[in-house]
Simulated assay, not measured.
Amino acid sequence: MAIRVAVVGASGYAGSEALRLLLSHPEVEVGAMTAGSSAGTPLGLLHPHLVPLADRVLQPTSPEVLAGHDAILLWLPHGRSAAVAEAVGEDVLVIDCGADFRLRDAASWEKFYGSDHIGTWPYGLPELPGRRDVLKGSKRVAIPGCYPTAVSLALFPAYAAALAEPEAVVVAASGTSGAGKAPKPHLLGSETMGSMTPYGVGGIHRHTPEMVQNLSIVAGEPVTVSFTPTLAPMPRGILAVCSARAKPGVTPESVRAAYAAAFATELFVHLLPEGQWPATACALGSNTALVQVTLDEDAGRIIAVSAIDNLTKGNAGNAVQSMNIALGLPEELGLPRIGVAP
């Protein structure tokens, strides 16, 4: 019997990406598709590329609409996911693709989000050490942010192998779809074409504490992260350039070996051959993270670079991947490993 999956927030970019992936999932039936202000609108008017679902009408998000599903994927504004999870009951797999349940530290949540911390769910980045065991059989999963996905995959092998000092510097570029589908003047084509700009500068971006959390857990000690995001003139993709001071005695060979070991059996992380560097275009439409690493011996720093599609591996792909693990399905079902080029 097919697994019936609902998508809450199907009118947005990430929700539509989830539907694209679910349509190719051999074990899934796409159930309810809900939205807020777009409820009552045929999906094809918002996402004409989703041809098999184009005539389906978006429904309001209500317990009645969501009843009878095996899994629910949520894309909701901050503070709205808990009520949905409570309404559908504990036996339904709920995967929150927003930020509500990502952080363990209440003080960090309150500082960056300005509201009360309501709890923490199992974290849906399967490639981090120990994550798959936590996700198996879970009925609640919190999906990482797109930047923390790219940064954590780029840096965690260095910390897992005790090669890096507990401070990291990250400069990352994201496509405009990371800001959502709502109209915003600074995202108009005339504002973004041919231009790059930083934002959230000075440690204020909300994804910063998530990076700190992930890397600190792997390192076994507090790790600081100086994070500067930039907006790039492209619709999709993240390129994260990450560095950390190398510990004494670290060599290029030991860095390469640590990364090769960390990703040796991973389906959705590809360590590129030495000398080849990640490009966002090569990750387009795929659930694969492309990673490269080197040691800057003069500066004494490990340099790790990752490229992902922010809507796939950075969000909806992680959701489907974590759903598969939670339900006991093969992890790769419905998930493309191959990008689209040129």
Rank of each mutant, 00 (worst) to 15 (best):
V65A: 14
L66V: 13
A67L: 11
A67G: 12
H69S: 10
A71S: 09
A71Y: 05
L73T: 02
L73Q: 00
L74P: 01
W75R: 01
W75S: 05
L76C: 04
L76M: 08
P77H: 11
P77D: 13
P77R: 08
P77S: 14
H78Q: 14
R80D: 14
R80H: 15
A82R: 06
A82C: 05
A82I: 05
A82K: 07
V84H: 00
A85F: 02
A85T: 04
E86W: 08
E86L: 11
E86S: 13
G89K: 07
V92Y: 03
L93K: 00
L93V: 05
V94T: 04
C97E: 03
C97N: 05
A99C: 13
F101P: 00
L103V: 08
D105F: 09
A106D: 13
S108L: 11
W109F: 15
E110N: 08
K111T: 12
K111E: 15
F112N: 02
F112T: 05
F112W: 14
Y113S: 03
Y113K: 07
Y113E: 07
D116N: 14
H117Q: 07
H117M: 12
I118W: 08
G119E: 08
G119Y: 07
T120F: 15
P122S: 11
Y123W: 13
G124F: 03
G124K: 00
P126D: 10
G130N: 14
G130A: 15
G130H: 14
R131E: 14
R131N: 11
R132K: 15
R132W: 11
L135R: 00
G137E: 12
G137L: 11
K139L: 12
K139T: 12
R140Y: 09
A142S: 14
A142V: 08
A142W: 03
I143T: 03
I143W: 02
I143R: 00
G145K: 01
Y147T: 04
P148Y: 08
P148M: 10
P148N: 06
P148W: 04
T149N: 02
A150I: 08
V151R: 01
S152W: 04
S152G: 13
L153T: 01
A154Q: 06
L155P: 03
P157W: 00
P157S: 10
A158H: 01
Y159M: 04
Y159N: 01
Y159I: 04
Y159F: 15
A160W: 03
A160M: 08
A162V: 10
A162D: 15
L163Q: 02
L163Y: 04
A164G: 09
E165G: 13
E165F: 10
P166C: 14
P166K: 09
A168D: 09
A168Q: 04
A168I: 10
V170W: 05
V171M: 11
V171L: 14
